[in-house]
Design a protein around this nucleic acid. Structure first.
Lengths: 85, 85
DNA sequence: AGGTAAATACCGCTATGGCAGTATTTAATT
DNA sequence: AATTAAATACTGCCATAGCGGTATTTACCT
């Protein structure tokens, strides 16, 4: 009777990051960690609304919110260098 | 007598991306392209204020603004996969 | 199918990001 | 040092992101 969060598989990114892909990564990471939305939002220091918007790519969000969530969930963002490293 | 934009070198990123590093990448990319702030803001479809905030990491910005700027300048953001690709 | 927890939807309220336009300061080139 | 464009600073307005709290819906588990 203990309800669990169904873990999603890590998406494969091709091309530059967009909001939808970012959301997929966040949701995958969260579910793989077995965490709920409310729990995770509190853990990351953002509102449930905000985390939902990130995961579902609804509307817009602040960069700081994205960085908070990625930071707390251990999602590493990289800029691909356009010249030799 | 034609004033030029002084090109900055591409920064080296270590660790997860933060607002300051992102700004450095954007400014490096813009100056390497020989573009001014006003020109670039218009080209990217954001206000001068917004581009300045991104480059100097002042205050906060919308994710959509960041993605617009990165997209137009050819800056590629990647999520580092946490399991085998 | 029923019970239970997670996810989503809804509600104002407040804070602030985004914008255009202009004025001012800074800095690159001769 | 003078010139001229780029960069920054300032102003006000509007739109909306962020928030907590609660209510509702969805979906997992036995």
């Amino acid at each position: 009777m203990v309800k669990r969060v169904k873990p999603l598989s890590t998406p494969v990114q091709e091309g530059p990051l967009d909001a939808r892909q970012l959301g997929a990564f966040v949701r995958a990471r969260r579910t793989q960690a077995g965490m709920g939305i409310h729990e995770t939002a509190a853990f990351c220091g953002v509102a449930v609304d905000t985390l939902t918007k990130i995961e579902k790519a609804l509307g817009d969000v602040q960069l700081s919110s994205v960085l908070k969530v990625c930071g707390m969930l251990g999602i590493v963002l990289k800029v691909e260098p356009w010249d030799g490293q």
